[in-house]
Design a protein around this nucleic acid. Structure first.
Length: 209
DNA sequence: ACATTAAGTGATT
DNA sequence: AATCACTTAATGT
């Protein structure tokens, strides 16, 4: 597992000494597909680094409504959870593993120290923030300015990007929930996309062409 | 064969 | 774009 962590962080430009610290201080954690890693409103004392697999980050309310934001992939860390941890605040989003996902959990108490001790760690965090912020802007754009059909197609492409597969194993209902829409609407739009030759549909599965 | 779950469709707001 | 009501198709037992 540590080797995998090493290779996941190889492109991060983090100081080797820091990577060693991360390795010695954290612990591995596996999350199965579909499992919730972070529940909105919960607090955590550990920061997750994604080694492999991916996490679906979304905003949700207590009534089961969900709003998909973006995916977190290997080598990335959750910028939001870092501030959450440092401030001891509760999470304002939830993270669900889309596939079986390997994580490296690092206790937050080290973060302050690392931010001072390792300049590249600071860069890493700021960079992560920047990336997430851009993704958030994208998400906002897609909600505010894009029609549902465009959102849906973008969503499918996001999944392709995150999983590296053209096959999406989800039901119309699940998709509708994640986009905070209704099943009927999604069914119709998917049908449309199929007619346009952009996708092919099967039961519990959609293939992007 | 039957029940359950997923997906398709027309009509209405 | 959402909801209702209903149909059809696929799957599990």
């Amino acid at each position: 597992m540590k080797d995998k962590l090493q290779s996941a962080l190889i492109n991060s430009k983090l100081e080797p000494a820091l990577i060693e610290e991360i390795k010695s201080v954290g612990r591995p954690k596996n999350v199965d597909a579909g499992q919730v890693l972070i529940q909105q409103g919960s607090g955590s004392k550990e920061v997750p680094f994604v080694i492999s697999g991916n996490l679906r980050i979304s905003r949700s309310d207590n009534e089961g409504n969900e709003m998909f934001l973006y995916y977190l992939q290997g080598g990335e860390t959750c910028a939001m959870s870092i501030t959450c941890c440092i401030e001891g605040k509760k999470s304002n989003f939830s993270a669900v593993a889309e596939e079986n996902t390997e994580l490296w959990m690092v206790p937050m108490q080290y973060l302050d120290e690392w931010l001072i001790k390792y300049p590249n760690f600071k860069k890493f965090i700021f960079n992560a923030y920047q990336l997430r912020f851009d993704e958030l802007l994208n998400a906002i754009d897609s909600m505010a300015f894009m029609k549902m059909d465009q959102r849906l197609f973008k969503y499918l492409l996001d999944i392709k990007q995150a999983t590296g597969s053209y096959k999406v194993h989800k039901t119309h209902e699940q998709i509708a929930n994640e986009l905070n829409s209704s099943r009927v609407v999604i069914s119709r739009l998917l049908k449309q996309l199929e007619r346009e030759g952009k996708i092919e549909q099967f039961r519990n599965k959609i293939e992007i062409l």
